[in-house]
Simulated assay, not measured.
Amino acid sequence: MPSEVEEWRAGGRQVRTRAGTLFVRSAAGAGPTVVLLHGYPSSSFDFRDIVGRLGGRAWLTIDFLGFGLSDKPRPHRYSLFEHADTVEEIVAANTAGPIVLLAHDMGTSVATELIARDIDGTLTCALDRVVLSNGSVILEKASLRPIQQILRGPLGPAAARLANRPVFTREFARLFSARHPLTKEEAAAQWALLAHARGHRIAHLLTAYLDERVTNAARWHGAVRDWDKPLGFLWGTADPVATVAVLDGLRALRPAAPVLELAGLGHYPQLEDAEAFAAGARTLLAIDGS
Rank of each mutant, 00 (worst) to 15 (best):
A245G: 13
R251H: 01
A126D: 15
L162V: 10
W59K: 02
F81G: 04
W220I: 04
F277A: 09
D105E: 14
H221Q: 14
W227Y: 06
F168S: 03
A178Y: 06
G266Q: 08
P255R: 11
W191L: 04
T61V: 07
I287K: 09
L253Q: 05
H267C: 08
E272C: 01
D288E: 15
F64P: 09
D120V: 12
T237V: 09
G52H: 06
A197F: 01
I287V: 15
A126R: 14
A203P: 09
L22I: 07
G266L: 02
A252V: 05
T215G: 06
T243G: 02
G20Y: 03
K184T: 13
T124S: 14
A281N: 00
R225V: 04
T95W: 08
D49I: 09
S43F: 05
H180N: 12
F45N: 07
L60G: 06
V214F: 09
A28E: 15
I202A: 02
D128K: 01
M106D: 13
Q270K: 00
G68P: 12
E212W: 00
F168N: 07
Q190E: 14
L247P: 06
A279T: 15
A281T: 05
R213N: 14
Y209A: 07
W59R: 02
T17L: 00
E82A: 04
L101N: 07
H38F: 08
A195F: 06
R53I: 05
D49T: 01
E185Q: 15
K184F: 03
A158D: 04
V246T: 02
V35F: 11
E186R: 13
V35E: 01
G289E: 13
H221R: 12
R254W: 08
R74C: 00
V110T: 08
V224L: 01
A238R: 01
D226T: 10
V246D: 03
G289P: 08
